[in-house]
Design a protein around this nucleic acid. Structure first.
Length: 490
RNA sequence: CGGGGUGUAGCGUAGCCCGGUAUCGCGCCACAUUUGGGAUGUGGAGGUCGUCAGUUCGAAUCUGGCCACCCCGACCA
């Protein structure tokens, strides 16, 4: 059948690509490295956005919007920032096209911009340039702003959702009077991300801080949440940066403190992107298609009628429509698929591929017995139950599925976290098992770099609240006081 | 960006080596019978063979450029 996808065991990467396409999440576009997010994929993103946006607002943030274009000169103001992004910027040089003598459309050479514009790869520079005019006094602080936007990073090698040239995200940019307050904000938003990813996406994460090598360009500290996917690779699911006074200095954003002292403000920035869609797929889905946690499923329950003739369908409608209403009163999103153009078996397979958590089938047999058949997507199990009081059962079932997905992912993360003491063990675990490897490291960038070159593994993070213990670096044998998490990452 | 591979109907493919206007399956349309796990039959529609150029009487097939995707590498807040 054309709707089948490869298996994870056979070729994880191929399975992922086929799944994204066949579950109708996204497809490749005519533009290199850019994807079209299809309605089903976009509906999931909208659910993510809605949940995150509420969490941001509940923690005191407001939304705003800044320009897509950034004057080139802005990038030269923060040295490490430009270093980090220069290699992957799309640049606008002209503002007009014209018809050439041969009839083709060409860029009008007379329409060259005085100063080139950069399509934002991230908005720190344009936002901090704007903040200069907004902040004068400690009374203007803290400034807690988020933006939902698209950004462009000209990546050499792209993958649907995980790394695309253009992607959708949110970026929070806050300004504070003290370093302590900015650090607190950085940590708070990391907690918000972890809360979201674990409770909505059902993906357990490790909260940690990045090493100097992996730090955001222009940050003093980069905090992150790292997820472990089914294939034993790690994925950075969100980052929160403590930017110190770097951007305030670069864009001259000063404020007068309560004590009358003039000082630069302290900054944070934090973001998650459509990459989370990739994490969602790679965490829960199986060889039959997408598996969605109920909290993010655009359709939580689908009802499929099984009937003969228009009259048969009408009889089922009499039972199903009130049931649909009841479920909706519990806040459940329900689709009654009464299309006569597809057969029940086709619909079963289709909704399985698209990851609808619960399916209810109602046929004449059920009408006679006062029952329905309930199937859950996560376990693929089915049972026939009385329609009486089914609403509360479904509410419970959705909650069970959400929990079950999290527990499975948590078990995997635990099983795929290995403590090693020696280099040989380290290499062996990476080669045979994958996952997170907790090992001692001497704390130097040189060692980190060497390990990356030798094994492809990077330090995903130094976990927060890490146990302090004496040990020896797996590569150099130098003293170490804590373990860090290594992994092969996306 | 370097190495390798692929591109033929909406999807998956045969044909390419050895040049003669394209095969099969799924899907699509019509009708009938069907409907508790991707129905069956009959009939039908759908193709500038990725694209541009070259060789040739003639190109899906040979040659070159370009584009896109996949795999490996480099890069990746």
């Amino acid at each position: 059948m054309s709707k089948e996808i490869g298996t994870r065991k056979e070729d994880f990467s191929k399975w992922y690509n086929e799944l994204v396409l066949k579950a109708d999440l996204a497809e490749h576009s005519a533009v290199r490295g850019c994807m079209v997010i299809k309605p089903h994929g976009y509906a999931i993103w909208e659910k993510m956005q809605a949940a995150l946006d509420k969490m941001f607002k509940d923690t005191g943030h407001v939304n705003a919007y800044f320009p897509l274009f950034i004057p080139k000169s802005f990038f030269s103001k923060e040295a490490s920032h430009v270093d980090g992004f220069a290699k992957e910027c799309a640049v606008v040089t002209h503002y007009r096209l014209k018809t050439a003598p041969d009839g083709s459309i060409v860029v009008d050479p007379d329409a060259k911009l005085e100063e080139e514009l950069i399509v934002r790869p991230t908005s720190e520079t344009i936002i901090w340039n704007t903040y200069r005019g907004w902040i004068q006094s400690y009374r203007d602080l803290p400034l807690l702003i988020n933006q939902w936007a698209n950004v462009v990073r000209w990546e050499m090698r792209t993958r649907l959702f995980l790394r695309t040239a253009e992607f959708l995200w949110q970026e929070g940019h806050t300004a504070h009077a003290t370093a302590e307050e900015a650090v607190e904000e950085t940590r708070k938003m990391l907690d918000v991300y972890a809360d979201f990813v674990e409770n909505f996406m059902a993906v357990p994460v490790v909260k940690g801080v990045k090493t100097v090598n992996e730090r955001f360009a222009g940050a003093l500290d980069t905090y992150c949440i790292e997820a472990m996917l089914q294939d034993g690779k790690a994925l950075q699911a969100g980052t929160s940066h403590f930017l110190g006074q770097n951007f305030a200095k670069a864009f001259d954003v000063k404020f007068t403190s309560k004590e009358g002292k003039l000082d630069y403000v302290w900054a944070t920035s934090w973001g998650v992107s459509t990459r989370l869609m990739g994490a969602l797929v790679m965490s829960h889905s199986d060889d039959n298609g997408l598996v969605l946690p109920p909290k993010l499923a655009p359709i939580q329950v689908v009802i499929v009628p099984i009937y003969k003739g228009e009259e048969g369908l009408n009889k089922i409608r009499e039972v199903v429509l009130p049931l649909k209403k009841k479920l909706e009163n519990f806040g459940i999103s329900v689709k009654f698929d009464d299309r006569d153009t597809q057969r029940p078996g086709w619909k079963f397979a289709e909704y399985e591929m698209k990851g609808v958590p619960v399916r209810i089938a109602v046929g004449e047999r059920d009408l006679a017995n006062g029952t329905v058949e309930i199937a859950r997507r996560d376990t693929l199990s089915k049972e026939t139950v009385s329609i009486e009081g089914i609403e509360t059962k479904i509410v419970q079932l959705l909650s069970d599925i959400q929990d079950n997905l999290y527990q499975i992912a948590l078990k995997r993360k635990t099983e795929l976290t290995t403590r090693v003491e020696t280099w040989d063990e380290f290499v062996k675990v990476l080669e045979t098992k994958g996952g997170f490897v907790a090992a001692h490291w001497d704390g130097t960038s040189e060692t980190e770099q060497k390990i990356k070159e030798m094994t492809k593994a990077t330090i995903r993070c130094i976990p927060l609240n890490n146990v302090q213990e004496e040990g020896k670096c797996i590569l150099t044998g130098a003293r170490s006081k804590e373990r860090v998490l290594f992994a092969i990452a996306y």
